[in-house]
Design a protein around this nucleic acid. Structure first.
Length: 580
RNA sequence: CGAGGUGUAGCGCAGGUUGGUAGCGCGCACGGUUAGGGACCGUGAGGUCGCAAGUUCAAGUCUUGUCACCUCGACCA
């Protein structure tokens, strides 16, 4: 490819709206161009990179006997009503009417389509297990796109669906996919990623894992143990906290005036926040009259994902003010209106004396003791883990890091096959609902992750396995006949040898060529110049290490082939070492 | 959806308080001098100042409305 013809504008300055490294570098290198919020055009280099990533994903999926299919982007309402998701998914799913006024939607995931296909074709257990996957554009109307390719509305995604006869079979396959995912992320050059247990969310099902790239700009919080392998998404993470130890006191009402917050009340009463009880008010989604109050220790925060699990209901922050008790702000568990749904965090169970709201203006109680004063209360884990809390596995200290979700896998169970009525004949002739797993990887997010993780102050640093071109040639003084002749000669020889080459054929200054090459991030740079040719040499630089070496011109093709092979071998060795 | 911010040439920005011929740097085109880390000189092209209405003799600038984009939050298979 000749750089002068490449539709890809490099800039010195990043667009004003780019704030994070991957967005800045991909924009500056001309890989992406924003069209609307969260909607981008990918230029040839980015598309080539995307294709290389997709091919690696294909190889790994095919190795698990995956069958690549292509589901429709547009589906009819009826299909999604079978799983009830037409109604349960919010406005992130685009709905529209076709010319016959029929309700249609843009698929943001394809469980329904996968079951639709399997249901028509699979009728016997002998056809299982099987896995189908696709790589396709998805559109999700995100409330807020951000961070360049990190969180977009339109993106390319690989989504896979497997069907099994037994839970054991699903589990075995699930861990094969788990392993394949590790291989994929290693192969595309990512290093600092981990797998974590996650909440299965709206997908339903039980066990789920997310693959997370650890990075400051990540939007998910991950809880990790400093001393053992424990790690989990904040949504499901468990931690132990230091017990709040104090004397048993009698329950008594105290005047607290206008003090409302935990801090104000505790200051007035001379108590620490860990001896108080915090109330957080929610409403059941879709029914703002149905109020839920979650109680936790004053120094902790409520984890909404955990609370939703306990309630088995979707909730939203309460913004009403209907009840007098809620309006007064001093909410406490004691003598609370019985019609209100309450959930108590386990941290409250053994505290001897708590400060609690008195459910009336200007008063709190001190000395509240759940065992003595509310022996019927049940306790659940609904609090957020904090930095420094105690690991539930080994007792070490937990820390919290940010991560970007780069892939996820779910054991779905029979949620979709059951709701959509997919049955298959077992060996004994009875019918059963196949057990499903589903597995996703966002390709664009993988590109952003690579840029985020490997880029430096000069630009992108692309791994050999996914770089759009393996070699970036910079002929200096291409107006010099000898340089032009030899450079094009080498360019042709490399292409004949099967090497992907980007050739900077512009007659511009060395600095411009070097800066563009650094910015675009191809792994190998070859410089041909009057200076190097005087000794019949070329100069080869490795982008990642910045090491430069001179080689005889005649050896250039062999040297490049060896460098590419060595680099690919290195990545593959890493894959074999870390993923088995 | 809540809070804040920004819209002027492909990109980065000035001009706006005090209304009066549309500016700068980079990039782009042409000519020349240069040549190993974003060189220099000269010439030139490129803008309905996000959009709409209003005030005014006159609006990039003032008023109102509206749209888009960004950041933080809420949300997020």
């Amino acid at each position: 490819m000749l750089l002068s013809k490449l539709v890809c504008e490099r800039t010195k300055d990043a667009p004003q709206d780019a704030k994070i490294k991957s967005h800045i570098l991909l924009s500056r290198a001309g890989f992406i161009k924003q069209v609307a919020g969260g909607i981008y055009t990918m230029t040839m280099p980015c598309q080539k990179m995307s294709q290389k990533i997709q091919n690696i994903i294909r190889e790994e999926m095919d190795a698990l006997d995956g069958q690549e299919v292509l589901f429709p982007v547009v589906m009819p309402r009826e299909l999604w009503e079978l799983s009830d998701r037409y109604n349960t998914i919010g406005s992130e799913m685009v709905r529209f009417k076709d010319r016959n006024n029929r309700d249609m939607l843009l698929g943001m995931t394809h469980e329904e389509a996968a079951v639709h296909l399997a249901n028509h074709i699979v009728s016997s257990y002998a056809q299982l297990p099987m896995m189908i996957y696709q790589i396709q554009t998805k559109f999700r109307d995100e409330a807020r796109a951000r961070g360049g390719l990190i969180r977009v509305r339109e993106f390319t995604m690989k989504d896979a669906y497997s069907f099994h006869t037994t839970k054991e079979d699903l589990e075995e396959y699930y861990y094969k996919v788990f392993n394949a995912y590790n291989r994929i992320f290693r192969r595309i050059g990512l290093k600092n990623f981990i797998d974590i247990k996650s909440d299965s969310g709206m997908m339903g099902g039980s066990i789920a894992h997310e693959f997370m790239l650890l990075t400051e700009v990540g939007e998910d919080s991950i809880v990790l143990c400093n001393d053992c392998d424990y790690r989990a998404n904040m949504e499901v993470a468990e931690g132990k906290i230091n017990e709040a130890k104090c004397e048993i006191e009698p329950l008594q009402e105290v005047f607290t005036g206008d003090d409302k917050t935990i801090e104000e009340v505790c200051n007035r009463l001379g108590k620490k926040a860990e001896f108080s009880c915090k109330a957080v008010v929610f409403a059941v989604k879709g029914n703002s009259e149905e109020v839920v109050i979650a109680f936790t220790r004053g120094d902790l925060e409520v984890n909404e994902a955990k609370l939703k699990k306990v309630l088995k209901k979707d909730i939203v922050p309460y913004d009403g003010g209907v009840s007098e008790i809620i309006a007064c702000g001093n909410i406490g568990p004691y003598n609370l209106d019985k019609s209100i749904i309450t959930v108590y965090d386990k941290s409250l169970k053994d505290v001897n004396s708590l400060v609690i709201g008195a459910n009336k203006p200007e008063y709190h109680y001190t000395g509240f003791n759940f065992k003595r004063d509310m022996p019927d209360a049940e306790f659940y884990d609904i609090s957020k883990v904090r930095e420094g809390d105690i690991c539930p596995v080994c007792g070490g200290k937990l820390r919290i890091e940010n991560g970007i979700e780069i892939g996820n896998i779910f054991q779905l169970g029979v949620k979709y096959t059951k709701s959509m009525g997919m049955t298959v004949a077992a060996a004994d002739g009875t019918l059963f609902n196949p057990i499903m797993g589903c597995y996703g990887i966002g390709v664009g997010r993988a590109i952003a992750s690579i840029a985020q993780e490997s880029g430096d102050d000069k630009g992108l640093v692309l791994p050999m396995t996914v770089a759009p071109w393996q070699v970036h040639m910079c002929p200096l003084r291409i107006d010099n006949e000898d340089v032009a002749k030899k450079s094009y000669e080498l360019y042709d020889s490399l292409k004949k040898a099967g090497v992907d080459v980007l050739f900077d054929d512009r007659d511009t200054a060395a600095g411009i060529k070097f800066n563009d090459a650094d910015l675009m991030g191809m792994p190998i740079r070859i410089v041909v110049s009057p200076k190097s040719l005087a000794n019949d040499e070329v100069e080869i630089t490795i982008r990642s290490t910045k090491e430069s070496t001179r080689y005889p011109f005649a050896d250039a093709v062999e040297v490049v082939k060896k460098l590419i092979k060595d680099e690919l071998d290195k990545i593959n060795a890493e894959v074999e070492k870390k993923c088995n």
